[in-house]
Design a binder for these strands. Sequence first.
DNA 1: TAGTTTCATAACCTTATGGTTTTGTACTCG
DNA 2: CGAGTACAAAACCATAAGGTTATGAAACTA
Lengths: 113, 113
Amino acid sequence: MATDLLDATFAALADPTRRAILTRLAAGEATVTELAAPFHMSQPAISKHLKVLERAGLVSRGRDAQRRPCRLEARPLKDAVDWLEGYREYWEESYQRLDALLTRLRESEGGEG
Amino acid sequence: MATDLLDATFAALADPTRRAILTRLAAGEATVTELAAPFHMSQPAISKHLKVLERAGLVSRGRDAQRRPCRLEARPLKDAVDWLEGYREYWEESYQRLDALLTRLRESEGGEG
DNA sequence: TAGTTTCATAACCTTATGGTTTTGTACTCG
DNA sequence: CGAGTACAAAACCATAAGGTTATGAAACTA
């Protein structure tokens, strides 16, 4: 529906650093410095990535003294999956063909040897 | 796994024109001119979008005289969904909380009213 | 009060994106 | 052969993306 939201969500997911941040946040809240640690990248770079994630609604932030703990907001991911699910039949097509092939092979095996 | 492929897939999906193209292709093969028709956008622009989709492995192209029919290749979408599925529990969390709430409500109703 | 930690903002650079128009190529049809 | 169709490729432009360093503000700490 809200194509802009989908745009922002998919765009946010298109960067490996941001996906890694989401993965980290799945384990629980984390501060910016904690999130930045695993990467050899400056802190402002991480802050920019967080802003992208925030604009996509994938991250929300709290306040704990001078820290700004980040939290995963997974809801937009559901919209992304919902969109993608519309194509499931297309990537499962090959399995259907494989099923059909295996069935035919089994039949001919049974009939001929 | 192949993070580059995921990058390319999500990036390709981040554009509404490209998502529309995929939607169109789900209905069957189409030529570039056919794909371009619904958009007020030049043909080269569509060709560029198609190249992005092709690089992400979401579209393959045949040959029919001077036409280059495009075909949906949905396989990379499965990888995208597989990645996203890792987060399902997080967007379903609220439903879990709702379940817990409803359970508690039902219990107190049963016990007190 | 002064110093440190945590983070954001600004300014800047380079490359990528998304669009354009123009041109070129390959094929078909008359 | 010549004209038209279908598409790609080139050249160009404006803006966005992803990174940097330098600076600044807010809050804790000694």
